[in-house]
Computed example of a mutant assay.
Amino acid sequence: MIQPLAYIHPDAKIADNVVIEPFVTIHKDVEIGEGTWIGPNVTIMDGARIGKNCRIYPGAVISGNPQDLKYAGEKTTVEIGDNTTIRECVTINRGTRDRWKTVIGKNCLIMAYCHVAHDCEVGDFCIFSNNTTLAGHITIGNYVVLAGMVAIHQFVQVGSHAFITGGSLVRKDVPPYVKAAREPLSYVGINSVGLRRRGFTSEDINEIQDIYRTIFVKKFNISTALDIIEAERQPTEIRDEILDFIRNSNRGIMKGFSA
């Protein structure tokens, strides 16, 4: 299932049932899991670790050198989880000595012309729409949806189940379960449609909504809002996830609701 017009370094580790189309280039320090399809004109460079049943479309470049002037040639990797699809002309750079790897989780869809820079860590079941760009050192939770042409500043964190609308500039951290839009980026509600699709109950959704009403709508400062939530609400996994995310935010979180 390997076309003769592809170049594969003899030391690359290619599992069974991998399909490699013409004009693919695969470098030496590469591992590809079984059942993966590598489309024409894909370049996979040293340090790539690609899981099972992935699909990588024409023009993608995986594990290119970081676009970071501090990078000194250290041995780093890109890790792509099972069942992830990488569409046309996506670029994913490997890590630097900061985290030593760039990670894309399982069951993700990275659409055409997206860029994921060095040392990013992306969770499972994420969807990045066309032309979305992640700068270095970004952390993305599970089930995050980024609409087209979203641009995220380095070191930003995006919590699980968040949805960010198209064309957004993300300079601050985005907490879990929310929808984010406008300029500057602001809270515009919770991602209730996505949460229902993923099996969250009405009680869960109401809890999330009440918590963010205190944080973003009632005009408290953030530290006061968090103290109120902790004092007035019983501990739950959802409550604690939101509180921990905001308290551990290094860049601060996005703006609250404004009419």
Rank of each mutant, 00 (worst) to 15 (best):
M1T: 13
L5C: 04
A6P: 02
I8C: 07
D11K: 11
K13V: 15
N17V: 05
V19C: 02
T25D: 05
I26Y: 07
I26C: 04
H27V: 00
K28E: 14
D29V: 00
V30D: 10
I38E: 12
P40A: 14
G47Y: 10
R49C: 09
I50G: 02
I50D: 13
G51T: 06
C54A: 07
R55W: 07
R55F: 12
Y57R: 14
Y57D: 13
P58E: 06
G59P: 06
D68W: 10
A72S: 09
G73E: 11
E74Y: 02
T77M: 00
T77W: 14
V78R: 13
V78A: 12
I80L: 04
I80G: 07
G81E: 08
D82V: 03
T84V: 10
T85I: 14
C89F: 15
T91D: 01
I92W: 06
I92K: 03
I92G: 05
I92Q: 01
R94D: 09
G95R: 11
R97G: 03
D98M: 04
T102Q: 07
T102W: 10
V103E: 11
V103R: 00
I104A: 06
I104M: 11
K106C: 11
N107I: 12
L109Q: 14
I110A: 12
I110Q: 08
M111K: 12
A112Q: 06
A112L: 02
A112N: 06
Y113A: 01
H115Y: 15
V116H: 12
A117K: 06
C120V: 13
E121V: 13
G123M: 05
F125Q: 00
C126G: 08
F128Y: 11
N131G: 08
N131C: 14
I140C: 10
I140L: 14
N142W: 01
V144M: 00
G148K: 05
H153K: 15
Q154P: 03
V156Q: 04
V158H: 08
S160E: 13
A162I: 03
A162T: 04
I164Q: 04
G167N: 05
G167P: 01
G167Q: 10
G167V: 12
D173K: 00
D173C: 03
V174H: 04
P176C: 11
Y177R: 02
Y177V: 14
A181L: 02
P184N: 09
P184I: 01
N191H: 10
G194Y: 08
L195K: 00
L195Q: 02
R196L: 05
R197W: 02
R198A: 06
G199L: 12
F200L: 10
T201K: 02
S202G: 12
D204C: 04
D204N: 15
I205P: 13
Q209W: 12
D210L: 13
Y212T: 05
Y212M: 05
T214V: 15
T214A: 09
V217N: 15
K219M: 03
N221G: 01
S223K: 14
L226D: 13
R233T: 11
P235I: 08
E237V: 04
I238M: 02
R239I: 09
D240F: 03
D240S: 13
I246D: 02
R247I: 05
R247Y: 03
N248K: 15
S249P: 11
N250V: 04
G252Y: 07
I253G: 10
I253Q: 06
M254K: 00
M254Y: 06
G256L: 13
F257L: 15
S258Q: 12
